[in-house]
Design a protein around this nucleic acid. Structure first.
Lengths: 228, 228
DNA sequence: CAGCATATTTAGGCATGCCTAAATATTAGG
DNA sequence: CCTAATATTTAGGCATGCCTAAATATGCTG
């Protein structure tokens, strides 16, 4: 009934490995170590090896993998990873814009649904939203044909003192996101970095004179446009 | 990390077994045979036995099961089954009303997504739709607290000649649904049954004089209000 | 450049959920 | 009431995807 001689996996788990490799590889698509994956996915290193072998052996191969030398996405793997990211960000936008979700609840829902929606669903919510280019966190939405525009932002933790515009806010941790939201920090907000010590980033927002103190973790979640 | 000493399964597969038992048990919630389940779920009889043992052993038990005597839903099983049916029908309504899906595409999408949406998602689409009571096929949507209003409809195959109003149309088979749609048959439509032979149900729609010939399969997909 | 720390891989196990084949129980017919 | 057909269960296997523990490879440092 469900014969599958040629291994051609497209499971939730596979999706998550591909997304992780895309993310950790960065814009230069450099090789990703098993260790980094193990940490990122919160899975034992042995499980990583196991899965990478399967991904490399599938046809078409989803990753390029050599023992002890890390992985890179192969063409099909990159295609799928970008599709899943597109799904994720469209769903987040949809939940936020159409279903009035609070911003700190969109990630968890999108993380589950991204694997299960059809092409039709993707197309219809994109149309409903007017084919948006960025999601509510300020992240680029990959195009239908699998292209992701490059962002030239930097992390607030890497910034010198000065004034910036917030490009995006990480949705990885709902608590941090909620904190930032309640401080008024989100995409498009004008931010002045006044001083940065080890775990204390002093900022002010817009024209406000009030100083806000962010932890390093919170600052790391903020990406800013480098100039201006 | 993912410790789960007490078996408390809530997988897609479990959902589908519970839904199947709910459906096959009918409004009287009579015991369902393994055989019926095997046919309905397109799974080997041995797999049914296996799963039923697990469902009965879980705490709280999802089904009441005795060897060689069929199954019935236990309280928690019924609760979950109705929740999944509610999800399914709300999603179908949402796809149809908000995302402009064609009627014959809503079932497949809902069948996948029903297992993965959160309570919040359920609540928000219900609100967006104005808390609908019936889905686009004419089926009742179970309430939030797990009650399903009884329908007193009968199948067109069980009807005598006469005039009726269509209550609902089965979404189980997309081809049949598409056929009925293109013939103009859907919930609320006035239908006159002119004659029924083995595999030929002659009907006319509304005031039209034109006679339409339906196969038994197509007629079986139509449920009508018995009086009027 | 040897040795130690770290990263990776192999080997063996477990749960889920499916399968087939071979028992065994139930039911219906003669 | 006994037998044959049908339904159900047991037993043993397979793939996925995770785990731990024990090798083994890599690479950094003194």
């Amino acid at each position: 009934m469900t014969a599958r001689r040629q291994p051609n996996p497209n499971t939730e788990s596979v999706d998550n490995y591909l997304k992780a490799i895309l993310t950790l590889g960065g814009p230069e698509e450099s090789r990703v170590t098993g260790n980094a994956l193990a940490h990122y996915l919160d899975v034992a290193p042995a499980s990583i090896t196991n899965m990478l072998q399967k991904l490399a052996a599938s046809s078409p191969p989803l990753v390029e993998y050599e023992r002890h030398r890390g992985v890179q996405l192969a063409a099909s793997g990159k295609k799928r990873a970008l599709e899943v990211v597109r799904h994720h960000r469209l769903i987040e936008t949809f939940l936020y814009e159409v279903l009035d979700y609070p911003i700190d609840k969109v990630h968890e829902e999108a993380e589950r649904l991204e694997h299960f929606i059809s092409e039709l669903f993707e197309e219809r919510i994109a149309a409903k939203l007017g084919h948006p280019k960025i999601d509510p966190h300020g992240h680029c939405i990959p195009t239908m044909d699998g292209k992701m525009p490059k962002q030239n932002s930097i992390s607030l933790t890497d910034a010198l003192e000065g004034t910036f515009i917030v490009e995006s806010v990480s949705d990885h941790d709902a608590r941090t996101l909620k904190l930032l939201k309640s401080s008024g920090i989100g995409p498009g907000v004008h931010l002045r970095l006044k001083s940065q010590k080890a775990d204390d980033f002093a900022v002010s927002i817009g024209r406000s004179a009030k100083t806000l103190h962010l932890t390093r973790e919170a600052a790391a979640a903020i990406r800013i446009h480098p100039h201006h």
